[in-house]
Simulated scan of single mutants.
Amino acid sequence: MNLPSSRIPWLDNIRVFACILVIASHIVGQFFVSPPFTPDNETFAWSSFYTVLVRVSIPLFFMISGALLLPVRDTTGQFLKKTLHPRPVPLPAVVCVLHCFSVEL
């Protein structure tokens, strides 16, 4: 039994590309941690160049999420109630626990 798919293939491809860029950003970040960390080093220059190229990954994820939210059929109040309803309780609870234990973020 084949069910109709509601997936958007080109959006899935962009998501895969963004995942690869996130992995690449973590790999490039290792060059900044390992010595020698001097601006005149050739490794530093190349890792800086690649870092600039892979920084688009997080904005891509935000844009994909926004694109998937576009066909909203609810009113603004219904949408906000549905998306924000489960979140107000955990945040103050976490803040209170961190404050009680004096944990600095």
Rank of each mutant, 00 (worst) to 15 (best):
F62T: 15
Q78K: 11
V95S: 02
L98Y: 11
T83E: 01
P86G: 00
T51S: 10
V16R: 11
A93Q: 10
T75H: 05
K82V: 00
C19M: 07
A93I: 11
W10C: 02
P35Q: 09
G77D: 02
L68D: 02
I58M: 05
F17W: 13
D12T: 05
A18T: 13
F79N: 05
T76D: 03
V52Y: 13
W46T: 10
T43Y: 14
L84Q: 12
L21C: 01
Q30W: 10
A18M: 08
N41Q: 11
R87A: 00
L11M: 12
I20W: 09
I58Y: 10
F61T: 04
I27C: 02
P59L: 02
N41P: 03
V56T: 10
T83M: 02
H85K: 10
R55K: 14
P86H: 04
V54Q: 00
V89A: 13
N13L: 14
K82F: 07
I14D: 04
A45F: 06
G66D: 09
N41F: 03
I64Q: 05
P4D: 11
S47M: 15
L53F: 15
T83Q: 08
V52K: 14
V97A: 14
N41V: 00
W46G: 00
S102Y: 09
F32E: 00
L53Y: 15
L3N: 08
V94T: 03
T51H: 10
V97H: 12
F31D: 04
S48L: 05
V94R: 03
Q30K: 14
T83A: 01
C100H: 14
A24F: 03
Y50H: 07
V28Q: 09
H85T: 12
G66V: 11
V56H: 02
S57H: 14
G77V: 04
H99Y: 12
L68F: 11
P36K: 07
I23D: 01
F44P: 00
T38G: 02
R73C: 01
S57G: 07
V94Y: 07
L70P: 01
P35I: 06
K81H: 08
A93V: 13
G66C: 09
R7D: 15
C100L: 14
P4A: 09
F32K: 09
Q30R: 13
C100G: 12
A24N: 10
A93F: 08
H26R: 10
D74G: 06
L84N: 04
R55L: 14
D74N: 08
A45R: 08
D40V: 03
H26V: 09
L84H: 12
S6P: 10
A24V: 06
I58E: 03
N13Y: 15
E104T: 11
L98C: 03
F61V: 00
H85F: 13
S102N: 13
R87T: 01
N13A: 15
T75R: 09
Q78S: 08
R87M: 00
E42P: 09
I20T: 13
H99M: 08
P90H: 13
L11F: 06
S34H: 14
D12E: 15
R7C: 03
E104C: 08
V33C: 05
E104D: 08
M63K: 06
P9N: 05
T76Y: 15
V72H: 11
A45E: 06
V94W: 06
R15T: 11
F32D: 00
P90E: 04
L3P: 12
P92S: 07
F32A: 01
T75Q: 04
P88G: 02
Q30M: 11
